[in-house]
Design a protein around this nucleic acid. Structure first.
Lengths: 223, 223
DNA sequence: CAAAAATAATAGTAATACTATTAATAACTG
DNA sequence: CAGTTATTAATAGTATTACTATTATTTTTG
């Protein structure tokens, strides 16, 4: 990743955290290590106490940054979608052909993350895996409507809406652009999960990627 | 629902429960009331203590039927998929036209449940809502591989594989029958969720149903 | 260098997710 | 129908979680 990108900072809704983790070394350590720990033991077994032990710090110090682990998960996943959105906007910019634009957008949203971009202390490869395994849990709650009102899902919604608009640009007559956009995004996470744990429920192995599957699906549907 | 159907019993993998809840009145009460309570407060806040209070029984009595609430959720969702599978097999039986069969199958898997069929003490309308809100959580765990080996997801997998086979029957050249089948099933749950909580991310409102959306999607893709 | 801010350490609480024990009740069996 | 067995209820207890509160110590900054 070049210097140009490094001069950008992903900004997250400040209602999600108590204190901005980007504002201190401890905060960055919290983000860096929580990604690794959540990936390792899963969000259910993850606690601030365990995280404190890993970063050689105290449980109560973590609470100064995040109210609870749910908010931390919202922060991490918001960061991820923001990162995807950035890549999407950047890679579709200046492309005038509507079809090409759409194909690139689908690729950005559905591709597997293979290497850590060194964008920061955040490991995107591991973060992508967290998103696959844990993202649904961040909205499948009884508090989703309040949290949505608080703007905790804006980036996610904006990303889907971007894809939806590109779908409509390609075929203005298509009646389900938003549904198709949300299906691609959510479905892609699901296909990665299936590949790993229920391989008989997917055809995405080796050469056949979720990207290839969804690109074909969208183009045929919009024909 | 007619008497013919009432003479069938949905059978669940007996590793999921400690004691078959169908074998006693208390067991049936546990099932009936847990559906209502999980729907009301969500699986996270649901406890056997609260359930005990609702059914006028003791916490420890519930533990005689299910090891923990996760297993109870697996039981309920397995029951649901079994019920859908039954309906699917029944309604596609004796239909020779491959296309019609596929369309009926998609309808069965994606349709909204509007009324309690009085099949038993189980309220399918509420159960469908639980499946929408909680099903992903039953497999998005660190234990998924062991539990899969134990056969806790067989019904779900069989259902997807049935749809996958119908997709291949309709178009034997299509390269992603399993992925498409899993996308339809999971995607349909997701569209119902979006309709309720993120209406801007879906086009499924009023006349436009998830069923209509997915039927069109599949037929266009397989053309 | 003093004041303020941040962090660490410790303790404490209510709730959760159980296990274990014993008592009461119901069911089934010879 | 008495006696054994199975089932359920009640109570208590434990380790862990998800925090809050307090105080002490360290670090930062003006």
């Amino acid at each position: 990743m070049d210097e140009f990108l490094q001069s950008f900072k992903i900004v997250i809704n400040d209602k999600i955290f108590v204190k901005d983790p980007e504002s201190s070394d401890l905060g960055k350590k919290i983000i860096e290590q929580s990604i690794l720990l959540i990936h390792e033991i899963g969000i259910e077994k993850f606690t601030f106490k365990k995280l404190g032990a890993v970063i050689g710090s105290n449980e109560s110090s973590v609470y100064r940054y995040f109210e609870n682990k749910h908010k931390l998960l919202l922060y991490l996943t918001s960061w991820y979608w923001s990162w995807v959105e950035y890549n999407l906007v950047f890679s579709t910019n200046n492309i005038s052909k509507v079809k090409k634009k759409l194909v690139i957008a689908i690729e950005n949203i559905t591709k597997s993350i293979e290497e850590d971009s060194n964008f920061s202390h955040i490991n995107e490869v591991v973060l992508h895996k967290i998103v696959i395994n844990e993202y649904s849990k961040s909205y499948l709650t009884k508090e989703v409507d309040i949290e949505n009102k608080n703007g905790y899902f804006v980036i996610y919604k904006r990303l889907i809406s971007r894809l939806s608009m590109m779908i409509s640009d390609f075929n203005p007559d298509y009646e389900y652009p938003s549904s198709l956009a949300s299906t691609v995004l959510e479905g892609s996470l699901h296909q990665y999960f299936l590949k790993e744990h229920f391989p008989t429920l997917t055809d995405c192995h080796k050469l056949k990627s979720p990207t290839a599957y969804f690109t074909e699906l969208v183009l045929k549907t919009l024909k």
